[in-house]
Design a protein around this nucleic acid. Structure first.
Lengths: 205, 205
DNA sequence: ACCTGAACACCGTTCAAGT
DNA sequence: ACCTGAACACCGTTCAAGT
């Protein structure tokens, strides 16, 4: 009994990330959690990299779905909120996904769905790519949570540093588009700013 | 003689990344290259993470500068070409920078300069953020070079896979905005597509 | 002040062996 | 068929010791 399956291995990997963060994911950590030798895992994943890829795909699963209502702004908003909620419990997973989204099936499906939603609403080409891109990055960066908070702190510190003597007035002024210190509160604010920007472009001047 | 300095340590780190890629950067690798004990480095960098941060900042140095001509499109184009050229010799550095650009001084200065260039040309707010964002990501993703080529291959393979049975027609159609297989050739093509998209938005419809 | 050496707690992976 | 154990080549870092 207690036979090891691939699903059990992946579930253990997801649990490791949830409890100890993306960087703690390793063959030995997963094996230890299952009270098994590291070598036992090689029957179910071909390498440590394959394990990471499969675990990230499992974690990112919920972001794949995009509801298409005909209103692209509403779809982007709903998706961003779900992606944020899905990734927040897994420290470091959003960063990992930002780097590998092009190799991760649920992320590809999410981008595809968002591009389709824009197309349904009459937005195509560069406009669509830029809008989806900025919302996608925003949701992932916000989901980094505490890491983002630290980053925001670093920026402010750097502004007073000799290494970056020139200040960054534009970046500072537009910072809410990237990150803010109280991420859970300001997630909505930043998201609304982005969505308003996108909506404004659809309206004739 | 042959006294170790921080500059020597960082130069060795940069050389390790150039020759063996970002993932090969480690205390022990840098120490071995300098014919020195790993412990000797701790006099100049406080930790492995501090070493990585300093080496990435050194590599990213050349992307900080943004020439501001009054023509934002020209500025974006010139910057993207320089950033691409600067990062291509360092495998994996673009990916590392994509994750940490918010904590890396030269990247912050680049984004600031590009936002300023957009502002000079009458583009502000979301428009500026989205345009700078997409060009920034594009330049970094293209600089990944071979990794991007492999990623593009993965996408096509995934399209014929049961795991992602639904195809990705929009993403495929707009793929030149993200990546292409022959990156050095198509860098110019994709960049022009992006810049045309940005320029088109400035013109009244 | 500057560097070394040994040690400890990690990591992925190969290979031969158990049952 | 499935898992173990020992081994090898890595990793970061602490601590005590050399000169």
């Amino acid at each position: 009994m207690n036979a090891l399956t691939t699903d059990i291995v992946l579930a253990a990997g997801v649990a490791v990330v949830r409890e100890h963060g993306w960087n703690a994911l390793s063959m030995r950590a997963v094996a230890a959690r299952l009270d098994v030798t590291p070598m036992a895992l090689y029957r179910h994943v071909s390498s440590a990299e394959a394990l990471s890829e499969a675990v990230l795909t499992a974690i990112a699963g919920p972001i794949a779905e995009v509801t298409r209502s005909g209103d692209a702004i509403a779809d982007l908003e709903a998706w961003a909120r779900r992606a944020y909620a899905a990734l927040v419990p897994y420290p470091g997973a959003a960063t990992a996904l930002l780097v590998r989204w092009f190799e991760t099936a649920p992320a590809l499906r999410a981008v595809e769905g968002l591009l389709q939603s824009m197309y349904d609403d009459g937005v195509d080409g560069f406009e669509a790519v830029a809008a989806v891109n900025v919302v996608f990055m925003f949701a992932l960066m916000r989901a980094q949570g505490e890491q983002s908070v630290r980053s925001a702190g670093v920026v402010r510190r750097r502004l007073r540093t000799a290494a970056v003597a020139e200040s960054l007035p534009r970046l500072t002024g537009l910072m809410e588009h990237y990150t803010t210190a109280r991420f859970d509160l300001h997630f909505e604010y930043g998201l609304q700013a982005l969505l308003n920007g996108i909506a404004a472009r659809s309206v004739p001047a």
